[in-house]
Amino acid sequence: MRIAVMATCLGDAVAPQAVRATVELLERLGHDVVFPPGQTCCGQMHVNTGYLREALPVVRHATEVFGPVADGEWDAVVAPSGSCTGCVRHQHAMVARRGGDEALAVRAEAVAARTYELSELLVDVLGVTDVGAYYPHRVTYHPTCHSLRMLRVGDKPLQLLRAVRGLELVELPDAEVCCGFGGTFALKNADTSTAMLADKMSAVLSTGAEVCSAGDSSCLLHIGGGLGRLRTGVRTVHLAEVLASTEATQTPSARSLAAGVAAGVPRTETGEDPAADPTEEAPV
């Protein structure tokens, strides 16, 4: 399959490790992955902060960049994010219609029909639950709100995690409760957001897991930012990174462990030269 990756603005600039893992995973499964260079952002921040007029040109740009999927040039678009996929699927056409652009709305719906969150793509489109990953760690999984209640991914991420060799999956108490991120909510209602984060961190810590995984880098940044501040030693790792891991990447230096002293810290921070990153030599 020919699959275009939607890195998302956050994934591109702040959490590239999840995007890289998505690309490596899909290539390992034998697919042809492209990275549309014009991509920027899905517009979710504008939409969810109430800037629907400002969001319109952002939605138009995203629809142009990912338009080829509607024309059959690619088979699918994948994003390592439930909330960005949710924005494309449930908000792009709304923004267009509210802005009076029906043609854009129709085009956006056609793009949305072939845009998938990673676990959806793997389980529903590619029909695979065992991706051949190896990840010998105790992991708990936080189902992010938009993947759960906007996209209804259900237990697809858990099906994928259960098939990972070496991985010990521990149930997260009150898993379906929001971590308190909510985009600009974390800034505009920082106190309430922090109170929610505190409860999510308690739940994560109660599992005794080494790693808290999820399908959204934004939520992981939030949870990881809190766990790191408290020096809990629990790392946050995107679902794509877990699924991309194999025996080959789990070398004695255990690169992800070395990189993850503090939660939420991207791997690249251990080496100034990205070319020195051992994953680059991993077979794809």
Binding site: D12, P16, A190, T194, L197, R229, E269
Partner: peptide
């Protein structure tokens, strides 16, 4: 308002693109 209760990771040396 973010860093009052949460750390921020250092931006990566290389973007995904």
């Amino acid at each position: 308002r973010w860093t009052a209760s949460r750390d921020v990771p250092v931006p990566p040396a290389e973007t995904a693109r």
